[in-house]
């Protein structure tokens, strides 16, 4: 079974803080990590390979530094890493990104399953996975929390919904996006880390993936950010300190009319 895992390098948003004086992002010391949801995608891909044999290829689109994400993916059990990187991709929105990744996937000869994380933690769009499936015209199942069965022909998966879940069966090749309930990502092995360090990565530029330049980067992105601002803070509230008996009585008095 040949598996492609699409990953993204993101700033660790849990470390991002706002400078209360200037209302701007504090980026110092914020590390780049693999998008947390993609860690589940990698793990699921590696588990499928361990069960069915075959190969897992990690693919990412990003600046040259994103190769660190691919090396980490290899340390976790992926066999190869492909970095799709070109100045022409800069400024891509989800449409251009999914187009570019889909064209790169087409260049990889055979695959059975493409696995993506549910969404990226910096953009939170959840649009690139289904976008790739649409470009390739293959079936998709999003929010997969469990792969129940898989064989050469099809997979049966459980998709998480707001109310519970659904069981779906899709022929291969197909694309799934996974949620964190699907597995617990492993910690790399020392041998894996050593292998990743030495691994030779493939690097593709725009000319390598047979794409239409008009659909790349800013040119291929219908959406455009026109303004960035910090959300307005709420007005300062009333903070009670002191004896718990008194503070709780006061609070109940103030709120009791808002309830019922």
């Amino acid at each position: 079974m040949n598996i492609i895992v699409c990953i993204k390098q993101v700033p660790d948003t849990t470390q991002v803080k706002i400078d209360p004086k200037t209302n701007t992002l504090i980026r110092e010391g914020v590390e780049s990590i693999i998008n947390p949801f993609d860690m589940y995608a990698i793990e699921e891909g590696v588990r499928l390979k361990e069960k069915f044999g075959g190969k897992v290829i990690a693919i990412t689109m990003g600046p040259p530094q994103a190769e660190a994400a691919l090396r980490e993916a290899i340390s976790l059990g992926c066999d190869d890493g492909i970095l799709v990187s070109d100045r022409a991709f800069a400024g891509s929105d989800t449409l251009a990104t999914s187009y570019t990744l889909a064209m790169a996937v087409k260049k990889i000869e055979t695959f059975d399953i493409i696995i993506c994380g549910k969404q990226a933690s910096d953009g939170d769009t959840a649009q690139v996975g289904p976008g790739i499936a649409a470009h390739l015209n293959i079936p998709q199942v999003t929010y997969v929390k469990h792969i129940k069965e898989a064989d050469e022909e099809a997979i049966t998966v459980e998709r998480m919904t707001e109310e519970g879940s659904e069981i779906l069966r899709s022929p291969l090749p197909c694309l799934i996006t996974v949620v964190k309930e699907i597995n617990e990502p492993r910690i790399p092995s020392l041998k894996g880390k050593m292998k990743a360090k030495k691994a030779e990565l493939t690097c593709w530029k725009a000319i390598d993936i047979d794409c239409d330049d008009e659909r790349l980067g800013l040119n291929g992105s219908p959406t455009q950010v026109v303004r960035i601002f910090t959300p307005p803070p709420r007005a300062q509230g009333e903070i009670l300190e002191g004896d718990p008996q008194e503070t709780t009585s006061k609070l109940v008095e103030m709120l009791k009319d808002s309830i019922q």
């Binding site: 700033p11 803080k17 939170d124 959406t223 455009q224 303004r227 960035i228 601002f229 910090t230």
Partner: peptide, 16 residues
């Protein structure tokens, strides 16, 4: 919201 809600972004699709 973007960057984990730290900032807000206004986006348009002017020509599509």
């Amino acid at each position: 919201p973007a960057f984990g809600g730290n900032i807000m972004a206004t986006i348009i699709s002017k020509n599509h």
